[in-house]
Design a protein around this nucleic acid. Structure first.
Lengths: 190, 190
DNA sequence: CAGGACGGAGAACGAGCGTTCTCCGTCGAT
DNA sequence: ATCGACGGAGAACGCTCGTTCTCCGTCCTG
């Protein structure tokens, strides 16, 4: 049976996403992706000329997904402080996913950061995007030094992500939320 | 020339430590360790029966080293609050090392956490040790809920480690130190 | 001095990887 | 109905890896 290009691409990307995220990029072979996606190797290499291309597409997809889900949580709140706290509610719901295995960018960077400039760049871009979003939220909440508050929030978020991945518990998100509240008390007016 | 067992073991472990940490465990072959250590493959396998054993020894070494350096920084201070802040001074000096590449346990866990229970266990043990140390410091500082304060400090520390690894800057340590100070103001008496 | 245990250098082996190729069946165009 | 472009299944290729083996020189022991 022949599969049309768009859905084949989708199936490959979905399979790659699940496998790369669960086992790490290096531990997953192209054969495993072919089996999981049901797309033949030949077609797979027509869609993505090399494994590196597929890894990039995987990270791109993760970045977009992450941004979308974050925005959904944040935009559900209107009060500026609540919008900041929504970041940690987002993390909490993320940590509850059965497949949660930490941040794909941290993991990939740990694996390939020194050897693949492209992966390092994508990881940095992802984190920069997060920092920009937090800075904007901090500014909207009236922080006198939005970048500084954003940096604090980043530390809590990144810490929660890795701690939750290790402990296999969503609790770090609620702890981070508490700490964020205390830091906002110290860094926001009234 | 023949090398005595103890120094051969040391050379292998040093080479493995440098290479594993820099490039990740999976990306480094036994041949690279043999070249870097100057110990023949045969002897290498007498000292460490498999690569897995060597990885464990590498993580053990990192754990001990890390604990020792942390203790040195903390014990240089006497005031309980200063002893907590010394944790972040330690991180800062660590981040300044040219070879700094994030936390070896986070990196290894990202690579092998799902496939090697031994690595996962060692990583969890390392982090548990850090948490115990912070809890003790928080208790000594008179925190009403030492575990809670310790959890906040862990989030800041882990966040600083990964953020610094990404940004290749030691600044996250000073930001984490600031945030820790604010959180201590909110969680410690007087 | 003879024998043998040991270590070094690196070849060898079997497995797995990323990537390409072969073979064959299908299907649309003329 | 015939031809040709295309896709699927998976074999094949070249490489690298973890691990073992072979060969040879060295040095300690009697």
């Amino acid at each position: 049976m022949t599969i049309d290009t768009a859905t084949a691409q989708q199936q490959v990307l979905d399979a790659a996403d699940a496998l790369f995220y669960e086992r790490g990029v290096q531990a997953v072979g192209m054969d495993a992706i072919r089996s999981a996606s049901g797309v033949s190797l030949k077609r797979l290499y027509q869609l993505f000329p090399s494994k590196d291309h597929l890894i990039e597409a995987y990270l791109d997809k993760r970045d977009q997904q992450w941004k979308t889900m974050l925005a959904e949580h944040v935009d559900a709140a209107t009060d500026p402080r609540e919008r900041i706290l929504a970041v940690f509610d987002f993390l909490h719901s993320w940590f509850l996913e059965k497949s949660f295995r930490g941040c794909a960018f941290i993991n990939s960077f740990g694996e390939l950061g020194t050897v693949s400039p492209r992966v390092a760049e994508l990881a940095r871009k992802h984190k920069a995007g997060f920092r920009d979003a937090l800075t904007e939220l901090a500014a909207a909440a009236g922080a006198s030094d939005p970048q500084r508050l954003a940096d604090y929030l980043i530390l809590l978020s990144e810490g929660a992500i890795t701690t939750s991945a290790f402990s296999e518990s969503p609790e770090p998100a609620t702890r981070a939320r508490e700490a964020a509240q205390l830091l906002m008390d110290a860094n926001l007016p009234s």
